[in-house]
Design a protein around this nucleic acid. Sequence first.
DNA 1: CATGAATGAGACTTCATTCAT
DNA 2: AATGAATGAAGTCTCATTCAT
Lengths: 186, 186, 186, 186
Amino acid sequence: MKKPNARERILETAGRLFFEKGYSGVGINEIIEKAGTAKASFYQYYPSKESLCEAWLRSVHDNSEDFRTELLQKCCSPVEKLACYFDQLEKFLISGGFRGCPYSNTGAVSDDYCSGIAEQIQSHKESIRGFFRAISALQFSDHERADETGDRIFILYSGATSEAQNLKAIWPVHVARKAAVEMLKN
Amino acid sequence: MKKPNARERILETAGRLFFEKGYSGVGINEIIEKAGTAKASFYQYYPSKESLCEAWLRSVHDNSEDFRTELLQKCCSPVEKLACYFDQLEKFLISGGFRGCPYSNTGAVSDDYCSGIAEQIQSHKESIRGFFRAISALQFSDHERADETGDRIFILYSGATSEAQNLKAIWPVHVARKAAVEMLKN
Amino acid sequence: MKKPNARERILETAGRLFFEKGYSGVGINEIIEKAGTAKASFYQYYPSKESLCEAWLRSVHDNSEDFRTELLQKCCSPVEKLACYFDQLEKFLISGGFRGCPYSNTGAVSDDYCSGIAEQIQSHKESIRGFFRAISALQFSDHERADETGDRIFILYSGATSEAQNLKAIWPVHVARKAAVEMLKN
Amino acid sequence: MKKPNARERILETAGRLFFEKGYSGVGINEIIEKAGTAKASFYQYYPSKESLCEAWLRSVHDNSEDFRTELLQKCCSPVEKLACYFDQLEKFLISGGFRGCPYSNTGAVSDDYCSGIAEQIQSHKESIRGFFRAISALQFSDHERADETGDRIFILYSGATSEAQNLKAIWPVHVARKAAVEMLKN
DNA sequence: CATGAATGAGACTTCATTCAT
DNA sequence: AATGAATGAAGTCTCATTCAT
C-alpha cells in the first residue's frame, strides 16, 4: 500500500499534534500512524524528530510573517493594525483550545541552547517584536519612544498568549489589547 | 552514608531537575538516582510522577506566596513593592539560567484539563494576579481601575518572564518593570 | 509473570547466541525472548548490548583461564599439557559447530579501538600467549627460546581455530597440534 | 558531475567499507551514498547485499590469486617466495590498519552454511593452502612432507593474520614468518 | 539505464510503574 | 519503612528491499 506525498502528510500531522500536545508529548509512532506512513518514510524526509519540529516551526513562522507583512501593508491606521492583530490572536487561541504559542511551548521543553530549535524561537520572537516596533514607528516619530512602545506591546502580547493558555480564558487577550491600544494612542 | 528525609530529598532533587529540564525531560530513574533513593521508596511517598510534580509546584507556590505576602506587608509604597517584585524576578531569572516560570513551563507540557497540575497552575496564576491587583488597590481607590491596572501588570509580568526565557535576555523584564511602574504611578 | 534470576538467564542465553551467530547477528529482542525476560529487565543489569557482550567475554575468559591454570598445575609433562590443550580445543570446536574463537569473531565485528571489548580481546589473547610461553618454559631453560616457541605455538593455535571455522573441518587442529608438539619436543 | 561505471563504483566503495567495518557493520544506505548512486541502481547490479559481498570477495580473491601465481612463477627460491609472501602480508596488514583477513572476518559474521559466501571462503582458503603446498613442493620431493609443511605454514599464516588483527600488532607476522621459513629450510 | 519514494520489520534504549520480600 | 527485581509499553531510529515511473 503505497501513498504519495508522505512528506507533506507527515508535516501536517506532526504540526497538528505538536501544537495540541506539545513536542515532548508526541511520539514518532503516533505521527506516522495518523499520517498513514511507514516509519522509514518519515526518516527519509526528516533525519530526526527534532528536524521535523524545526520544519514545523519554520512553516508556522512563515504563515505568521505573511500575515503580519500583509497587515503592515494594509490601508488602515496603526491602531487598527494593532487591534486587528489582537483580534486575530483571540481567534487563534479560541479555535486552538488555548494552547498558547507554539514557540514558547516548544522552548519550554527543548532548551538545548545550541539547537536549531532554540535559534528559531529567538528569531521568531524577534520578528514579532520587530512587527510591534514597526507599528509603533508609524505612530510615533520619536524613534526611541516607538521602540519602547513596541517592546511593551510585545511583552503584553506574549503575556496575554501565555496566560490565556494557563488560565484557559480569553480575558488576558482583552486586557492586553486594551492596554496596547492605549499605549499606541498615547 | 546517612540518608535522612528521603521524601524531602526526592522533592528537592525533582524540583531542581523539573525546573532545569522541564517536567517531560526528567525521568523517575534520574530523580531517584540523584536523590540516592530506591525506586520503591519513591512510590511510597509519591504515588506517581504527576503527584510529585504537584508537590513540587505546591512548594514553589508556597515560597512564592510567602514572598508576596511579606512584600505586601512591608512598610513601603506600592510602587516600591512593585519595583521590588520585578527586581526579585530579575534575580530569579538570571540565577536560574532564564528557565522561565515553572508553572507555565509545566502547563506547556501537561495539558490534561482535569489534572491537579492544571488546577494548581490556574490557582497559582490567579494568586499572582491577585497580588498585582492588591498592590494596585493600595494606589487607586477606584476598584475597577485598580483591578484593570493589576491585570495589565500581571500580563506584563507574565510576558516578561516568558520572553526572557525565549530570548535568553533580561531586557523584557526591564521593559515590563518600567511599564508597570508607569501604570501604577499613572 | 515474574521470574527470578533474570540476570543469569540473560547472560547464559546471550552467550549461547553470541557464540552461535556472532555479536552482530543477535539482537536484544531475540535474547530477551529466549531468556524469557522483559526488555527493561535486561537494561537493569546491562546498560547496553555492548556491556552484555563484555560480560559474556569475561565469563568465557574466566572459564578458559581456569582450565589453563589447572592444566599447568596438573602433574604431567609439558608435551602432555600441550597435547591435552589441543585435544580440548578439538572437542570444543566440534561440539560448538566450528564456530571458532569467540574473541576473534567478536573482534571481527566490533573494532572500536577504545571499547572495553577490544581491551578484553587483547588481554585474553595475551593470556593465552602467556600460557603457551609458560608451557614452553617448562621445557626449555633458555628463556628466549621458550618465549619464541610459545609464541609460535600461540600462532599455530590461533590459525588452527580460525581455519577450522573457515573450512568447517578439524584437520587444521590436527596439523597444528602435531607441529606444536614437535616444536616443544625439539 | 559525471558518474561512469556505477557498478564498479559500488563495488569499490563497498569493498573499502566491508573491509574497514565488516560486512555487518556497513549498510546499503552508506554504500550507495558514498558511491554516489541511487538505491535502485544498486539493486539493478546486485540483487542483494549478500551478492555484493560475494562480488567483493571474488575480486579480492582474484587479486590475491594473481599475486600468488606471479610469485610462484617468479625466478627465486622457495624460501624467497615464502618470505616475500609474508612481507607482503605485513605491508597489507599495516596499511589496512590491522583489519585482518576479509574472508575470515566475513565468515565470523555470516555463518550460513549454504550461502555462496561460505563457499567462497572455503575455496579461497583452500587456494591459499594450495599455494603454500606448492611452495613446499618446490623444496621437498617427498609429497607427504611437502603437503604437511605447506599445511603448517598455512596455519601459521592464518594465525598471524588473525592475531595481528586482535592485538593490533605486527609481531605475530614476524614470528610466523620466521617459523615458516625454518620449516621450509628444514 | 536510472531513479526517488515508499515500505515492514526490527534495531537499541527508556518510560513510569508494581511486585515480593 | 525500605528495597532490589521485574515488567509492558513506548521511545527514536535503521535495516535491506521493492515499487512506479
